[in-house]
């Protein structure tokens, strides 16, 4: 079987060059965007795009195994891990544009240009000839050949790397582990806390509306204001549905805050947003 894209020897030159140039410009643009994007999630997505383009390039160069490993392991596992941690840390934690350290950007820019120039000189000096004639190792027999290499020439690094992986997993577990400083509250302790805390009833659950992701949607109190307590504290920090909550608050009649509840924040009147629950509420009142 021939894989026109994978087999370098037989692939058409123009196919290769078009593919290369498109992917190259795309990856460079994505990398630049990654460095310049403000929101961290955007950076993660752009990095995923770069990794995928790189996987295609591996494939073009006759490394199918690596291409798949890149997609599965790197993009699929490592980058997702990044996204999980982003969610924990705070999706909206955006960098401000102003730079706190004087001269850092200028120096970084200059250093970057300097490194670019130097490495270009290095690469230019080196005599990099044309690709070697590809054999089956760069195509169908790639997996077998790599396996042969790993388990013969590179078996020792392989074993060491496996030890490294185990150690990394253990390290992650240890680092993420939270040591309890006080004994774990039993059910009795929790119920005592609840009874004496002024809120015997459980917290209200989130509201569910057709257009929005349920978990971060606040429930509505009888007077029409959003129940802050119904949204998990973590999400409250992120305020993904900030617009919705602000809209709700704008329509609500201000009441004295309930026990333990902080007054709803953000009087950013966005009266234009009459979609969904606001309209429903207004509709109900007008009836």
């Amino acid at each position: 079987m021939t894989h026109p894209v994978v087999l370098a020897a037989g692939a058409a030159a123009t196919t290769q060059s078009i593919a290369f140039w498109v992917l190259a410009i795309g990856s460079v643009g994505a990398a630049l965007g990654m460095v310049l994007a403000r929101k961290a999630v955007h950076c993660a997505m752009l990095l995923a795009f770069v990794m995928l383009t790189l996987a295609i390039m591996y494939a073009m160069q006759g490394a199918p195994f690596l291409a798949f490993v890149q997609v599965i392991v790197y993009t699929g596992a490592v980058l997702m891990l990044f996204l999980f941690v982003l969610m924990i840390v705070g999706v909206t934690s955006a960098d401000s544009v102003t730079e706190t350290i004087k001269g850092q950007r200028l120096a970084a820019g200059l250093a970057g240009i300097g490194l670019l120039v130097l490495l270009s000189l290095v690469v230019g000096q080196a005599v990099i000839g044309p690709a070697a004639p590809g054999g089956p190792n760069f195509g169908s027999a790639n997996v077998g050949a790599i396996a042969a290499l790993i388990f013969t020439t590179y078996v020792f690094p392989f074993e060491v790397t496996s030890a490294l992986l185990i150690t990394a997993a253990l390290g992650a577990m240890v680092l993420a582990h939270r040591e309890r400083t006080s004994p774990r509250p039993t059910q009795r302790d929790l119920s005592i806390r609840r009874m004496t805390g002024g809120r015997p009833a459980p917290l209200p659950g989130p509201g569910t509306y057709a257009r929005h992701n349920a978990v971060d949607m606040p429930a509505m109190l009888p007077d029409g204001s959003a129940a802050r307590l119904s949204v998990s504290a973590v999400m409250g920090v992120r305020a993904v549905s900030g617009i919705t909550i602000a809209g709700l608050d704008e329509l609500a009649v201000p009441q004295a805050p309930a026990l333990g509840e902080t007054p709803a924040a953000g009087d950013t009147g966005d009266t234009g947003d009459t979609s969904g629950p606001a309209a429903g509420t207004g509709g109900q009142e007008e009836r």
């Binding site: 195994f65 690596l66 392991v73 790197y74 990044f82 790397t161 990394a168 390290g171 680092l175």
Partner: peptide, 20 residues
Amino acid sequence: QVIAFFVMVVAASEVVVGLA
């Protein structure tokens, strides 16, 4: 390619520990 493979493995473990 084998070296690149090992780099991926090491990068993965490094990401794990770093993010922890």
